[in-house]
Simulated assay, not measured.
Amino acid sequence: MSTLKLGTRKSLLAMTQSGMVADALTEATGRAVELVGITTEGDVNKALLAQIGGTGVFVNRLREEILAGTVDFAVHSLKDLPTSPAEGIELVALPPRHDHRDALCGPCRLADLPVGAKVGTGSPRRVAQLRALRPDLEVVPIRGNADTRLAKVTDGELDAVVLANAGLTRIGRTGQVGELFEPELMLPAPGQGALAVECRTGDAELIELLRVLDDPDTRAAVTAERTVLAVLEAGCSAPVGAFARVENEVLSLTAAVVSLDGASQIRLSASGHPERAVELGRELAAQLFDQGADKLMEAP
Rank of each mutant, 00 (worst) to 15 (best):
L4W: 09
R9L: 10
L12W: 12
L13E: 13
A22Y: 01
A22I: 06
A22F: 00
T26P: 02
G37D: 15
T40L: 00
E41R: 15
N45D: 15
A47M: 10
L48M: 10
L48E: 13
G53T: 11
G53C: 10
G54P: 04
V59F: 02
V59K: 07
N60D: 13
L62F: 02
E64Q: 12
E65V: 12
A74C: 07
A74K: 05
V75R: 02
K79I: 14
P96E: 08
D99G: 05
D102T: 11
C105M: 10
C108Y: 11
L110Q: 09
T121E: 06
P124W: 04
V127L: 14
A128Q: 11
Q129E: 07
L130R: 03
L133T: 05
N145K: 15
A146V: 10
K152A: 07
G156H: 03
G156T: 09
G156R: 02
A166N: 14
R173P: 08
Q176F: 12
V177H: 08
G178M: 06
L180H: 07
P183A: 15
P183W: 00
M186V: 10
G191K: 00
A194E: 08
E198V: 09
C199N: 05
L206E: 01
E208F: 07
R211T: 10
R211Y: 01
P216C: 05
P216I: 00
V222N: 00
L229F: 04
E233P: 06
G235A: 09
G235I: 04
A244D: 05
V246G: 01
T254L: 06
R267A: 00
L268H: 00
L268Q: 01
L268F: 03
R276D: 13
A277Y: 03
Q287M: 11
Q287P: 06
A293E: 01
L296P: 09
